[in-house]
Amino acid sequence: MPLYWRVVVINAVVFVLGTVALALAPVTVSARVLASEAVVLAVGLTAILVVNALLLRSTLRPLDRAVRLMERVDLRMPGERLPETGAGPVAELVEAFNAMLERLEAERSASTARALAAQEAERHRIARELHDEIGQGLTAMLLGLKRAIDRAPDEVRGDLELVQQAARGSLEEVRQVARRLRPGVLEDLGLLSALAASATDLSTHSRIHVERGLASGLPDLGPDAELVVYRVAQEAMTNIARHSDADTVWLSLSRQGDNVALLVADNGRGTSGLQEGAGIRGMKERARLVGADLTVRPRPEGGTEVRLVVPIKEDADP
């Protein structure tokens, strides 16, 4: 029965029952309503209203739940659903609403996966161009400068050596950017070596001391999950270097039951009062793609803690 006719039938039933009760009750109403009769009428009307309200409440309450969920639903935090109870048109509405949320979450997840895959492909392309074109050009420049320095008179040799040092520094920066864009060490040497290299880069360029606790013998997470772990650690350490004013970072990767946990913590100024930025949202998006759980919270001792918990694949070796 459509919802409109369901409400009409409920009201009709209540009014019919009220009319029957009034007809069968041993009460009369005078031309001038007496106080006792007014009390009886008020009690009867109140009973009719209460019964009607109770019957309609059970029918329409799921609509109120749907409205409240629509107001607070956030596709970046999936999983919220309306309870599927009862039967009839409202139950069908609840079922359709939950199915719509599932489709939207699935589409958003697929869109995010495509966007991140395109991002990784673009990173690889830029890294390759930096290495093959700009890097090789700077290398050729350094070779030419070396030959020029060897043949240059003393009065210009110093200037050429300064140019050579600047070109060498630029070449090293290009290589570092290319490494950050395309984690070749992750593909060639594995996750632990890639995390260790990122920690070394952080210590070298920001003077932040990194204490490592990278457990060996961890199960294989697969290329997608390992890339997520690496990117989350990379983003967390980049945020620390840029915003935290920390002097110590703790980086660990360990097994916890059926999960592998990444921890990046610092002793900086923390994130209290700061809004969630694009970096943290990006980390959460990556984590959801591999079924991982990411939390970013302040440490009791001061600073910030980023924890990523990645489930181990069922077919992974122990």
Rank of each mutant, 00 (worst) to 15 (best):
L3K: 00
L3Y: 01
V7D: 07
V7A: 04
V8G: 00
V9N: 04
I10N: 00
F15V: 13
T19R: 06
A23W: 15
P26W: 01
V29E: 11
A31N: 06
R32K: 05
L34S: 11
L34N: 04
E37W: 02
V40H: 03
L41D: 02
T46E: 00
A47P: 04
A53Q: 10
L55K: 07
L56H: 08
S58N: 11
L69I: 10
R76Y: 15
G79D: 06
R81S: 08
G88W: 13
V90S: 14
V90Q: 10
V94P: 01
E95N: 14
E105L: 12
A106N: 03
A110H: 03
T112K: 07
R114H: 13
A115C: 08
A115S: 13
A117E: 15
E122F: 05
H124P: 02
R128I: 05
D132V: 10
G137N: 06
G137V: 04
T139I: 13
M141R: 15
G144L: 14
L145G: 08
D150F: 09
D150E: 15
A152Q: 10
P153A: 15
P153K: 11
P153N: 13
E155P: 13
E155S: 13
D159E: 10
L160K: 04
R175Y: 05
Q176D: 04
A178H: 01
A178N: 00
L181S: 05
L181Q: 10
R182I: 06
G184D: 15
V185F: 12
L189A: 12
L191D: 01
L192V: 14
S198V: 11
T204M: 09
H205L: 11
S206N: 04
S206E: 06
V210K: 03
E211Q: 07
E211A: 03
P219S: 00
V228M: 09
V229C: 04
V229M: 05
V232E: 12
E235K: 04
A236W: 05
M237D: 04
I240R: 01
A241L: 10
A246D: 09
D247N: 10
L251V: 03
R255K: 00
D258H: 03
V260H: 00
L263K: 11
G268Y: 09
G270L: 13
Q275Y: 08
A278E: 02
R286Y: 06
R286P: 07
R288W: 05
V290H: 02
D293V: 15
L294K: 13
T295I: 08
P298G: 07
P300N: 04
E301L: 08
E301W: 05
E301V: 12
G302R: 02
V306H: 08
V310Y: 00
P311R: 01
